[in-house]
Design a protein around this nucleic acid. Structure first.
Lengths: 190, 190, 190, 190
DNA sequence: AATGAATGAGACTTCATTCAT
DNA sequence: AATGAATGAAGTCTCATTCAT
């Protein structure tokens, strides 16, 4: 039942927004009553927290697997993270959008917890860039923190417009982005 | 008075969200009563529309000036747009965030109008990339639409974390981003 | 309207209890809607506070008038306070009962304020007893604070059973009580 | 288990009120689940009835013992009842307060039953006063019913403020009250 | 003897909006 | 140009109670 509630809420929160989705709507969609909801959750906010936590923790887990692989270099790892984020769109687009857009409805404590994890993800990313710079896989004349924000912006933004069912596949988009991130767009006369 | 309402609403909508800000709060902040609000606006939604329209039209106007300048090449134009978007953060961060986050509260008609202008901005951007490709200022092996989304993602995302009052100035950030967009991050042994 | 709300609420709170009376019932009795209630009060608790404050402040005011009269001695003053409390039953019985029974539903701050005033009333009463002891109008071998509680108990309790419309009039009851307080019930052989 | 439920409920009902205490809270405090509660009680009201009945019946029992003692006179009996009520505060304060304050949540039938016993207690008290009057232990110029209410008010009220652990002991308070009841407070020049 | 899932009625409260003045 | 009173629909949440196991 808890699973059902989460699944339904994710759809509704993404489509209509957290505030705009009433508990009534959630339980009606499932076919139970409001009491049932409050048997599983103490508040609407707690449900949102669950959704947000699940999302970011899954992301951290996948990032960890990629970063701790001893057999890949920095460029490969960068590619894998970009690819991971793009492929996640298919299954996690809703959660991701809820994460970014509705996070502010969490209470102070939960918000702090969530933001810590989000920052952790970014810091890990940045660390990869820094290591790549040390190993001379990446250029080192630009500040790694700003670069990290930029690279994150590219993939995060794609959650708002990219449709994995469309003409461009996930693999293709990931490749395009990695190429862009590595080489930029300027024409170089050789 | 209308100016006061807009100014106050922008602050409140950004800080608390559209739904979370009541008309009561807006008019209390100004020091008038609800009747006054409804003298100037027919609904809360209309006020949001005003804010969103102003934001995107101003952006289009500035973009137009840059693009129509006959004396600059594509790379310069790209730099100018990036710089324009980053400098706008100082004065328009609130409006921009409201634009992205609260747009969905608009009614169908207004939403259509807004999205048309937003797409216009993106299409103009994309056109610049395409022209640059034709003129061999930009490489042409990557799809210009995906590149445009990527470039947009970089600057749009900065509205959520960049603080113009911080250590890195707007000029610096714009330079970093343009460098990144043009050349990428991969180390090139020459 | 505010007056109507207070009047109706006092009746309902007394008859059914604070928790047991819904806003719905209050406004239905008056013939308005819930919105109207919340136009005048921010919460149900605030209304209760108003009722409690009004009650205790009126009591303090009347007590003050009696105590500050320079032309009456302690015994007269005692009589006047007892009489005042008994006569108040007719008009204030409901408020008094709400005061005693529902006070605990007030929030911490309001409760503190109310209790301060209630203690003030008791302290003033006790002061009268102490002055009477000094002036040898009252015996001084019993602790004045305990006596004050006892005397208060007598009249306060009457709010729960005394009906001014019954056989015994207010004047009579006050006289009986003062006689009892002054002389006790033990038969004295003279 | 039933004992545990009663004990816990008395504490919670006294501290928070009957309506304000949920069955959930009661069973959580004990460490069982709601089903357990409903195995022992058919409703929350039934539990309240149990508490109230136990309290008043115990009181009647103790009163009976005192009144039926053939070896004590009326003044001694009065003293013993006052003392009994005061000593009860230590063990029964919570029950007593629930009795007075929450009684109204009982259903009609239970309320009738309870009130009958409460009146019985008062009537017995009044009878003692009347007998004392006949035997010329008590003055007979004041109506015994009003006097009974007054005497009851004194002790009942003490349930709301007297702390047996404080400076004044139960014996002392009983003595003070009996002295007051018998002799009053007026200074008598002899 | 006890559990856990589910119910459903009803509570307080919020708020955009209307309208006579 | 602005006010203040009033509306009413909708929202979140509570909780005593039921029932199959």
């Amino acid at each position: 039942m808890k699973e059902k509630i989460i699944k339904t809420s994710i759809e509704l929160f993404d489509e209509k927004g957290f505030k705009e989705t009433s508990i009534q709507e959630i339980v009606e969609t499932i076919g139970v009553t409001k009491g049932t909801f409050y048997y599983y959750y103490n508040s609407k906010e707690e449900l949102l927290k669950d959704i947000c936590i699940s999302y970011i923790e899954e992301l951290l887990k996948q990032q960890k697997q990629i970063l701790e692989n001893p057999n890949t270099d920095c460029i490969t790892k960068l590619h894998e993270i970009v690819y991971m984020l793009i492929t996640n769109i298919k299954s996690q687009r809703r959660s991701a959008r809820i994460f970014f857009r509705e996070m502010r409805h969490l209470n102070d404590q939960h918000l702090k917890e969530i933001k810590a994890k989000r920052n952790q993800f970014r810091k890990n990313y940045q660390k990869l860039i820094e290591i790549g710079m040390e190993k001379q896989q990446f250029k080192n004349h630009l500040p790694p923190d700003m670069l990290t924000f930029a690279i994150l912006g590219i993939t995060n933004w794609s959650y708002y417009w990219f449709h994995p069912e469309g003409e461009v596949s996930e693999e293709q988009l990931a490749k395009i982005y990695v190429d862009f991130i590595l080489n930029g767009i300027q024409f170089v006369d050789q």
